[in-house]
């Protein structure tokens, strides 16, 4: 299972502590764990994840309208599956056949799915988005991010991560590569948000 999901959101920022040095302090994280499942047909042999999670003590909750699944563990965790929105698709919730669940489909996470990084954390190999791309995505979604406090929280994440990204050649290179792959419209958004929010980002070529 671990090779097929990326951990995103505030828990990805916690996991970046295993990538950066000890001076990196992640932003506050909440009890919700967002799991990005980019390749909805992998593994090829489907997993009965619902049964496995129930056996592991999770409670499975379904949204009565969309049937999107959340997994609850005690008062500790709420796990939600997200996936990419592909092509012209607009369905807010789609099936993930590989695990027999329905997840939220968001176009905003597509960029994260395209740049996974394997991180070694406490003897586990976990997929997270490249930090540079994580930051880039936060900036790109800023104009339409709701509610307002999440906009602010995202900016804090960007400000907290960017100095570390600048200092590591791989991460800086990743940033430049991701930026060079943006459309003109996306570049325009990046520049505008960086200026409006006084973000110290590596110079755009």
């Amino acid at each position: 299972m671990l090779p097929h999901v990326l951990i995103i959101g505030s828990w990805a920022e916690y996991l970046y502590t295993f990538h950066f040095d000890a001076s990196y302090v992640p932003i506050i994280r909440t009890r919700d764990v967002d799991l990005l499942y980019p390749w909805i047909r992998r593994p090829a042999k489907p997993i009965d994840l619902e049964r496995m999670m129930r056996d592991a003590g999770f409670v499975v909750v379904r949204d009565s309208h969309t049937q999107a699944v959340k997994l609850l563990k005690e008062d500790l965790l709420e796990i939600e599956f997200l996936t990419r929105q592909i092509g012209a698709g607009r369905d807010p919730v789609i099936d993930i056949p590989a695990i027999g669940m329905r997840g939220q489909a968001l176009r905003d996470v597509n960029l994260l799915a395209e740049h996974p990084m394997v991180l070694e954390a406490k003897e586990h190999q976990i997929l997270v988005p490249e930090p540079a791309v994580y930051v880039l995505q936060k900036i790109l979604i800023h104009p339409h991010r709701v509610p307002a406090w999440k906009k602010e929280k995202d900016l804090e994440s960007v400000r907290g991560l960017m100095p570390f990204i600048r200092n590591i050649p791989h991460d800086l290179s990743c940033w430049h590569e991701a930026v060079s792959g943006l459309s003109d419209k996306e570049r325009s958004v990046l520049q505008r948000v960086a200026v409006e929010q006084f973000l110290d980002i590596p110079v755009l070529e």
Binding site: I28, T30, R31, D32, V59, V61, K70, L72, D75, E78, P147, A148, W149, K150, E152, K153, E156
Partner: peptide, 25 residues
Amino acid sequence: MPILRGVIQDEYERNLRMQDAYRKE
């Protein structure tokens, strides 16, 4: 402290969802 308030609001709603799910069980 809008971020902290927003986080607590989110957690509050999560708490209610958890209570709802466990009550049903």
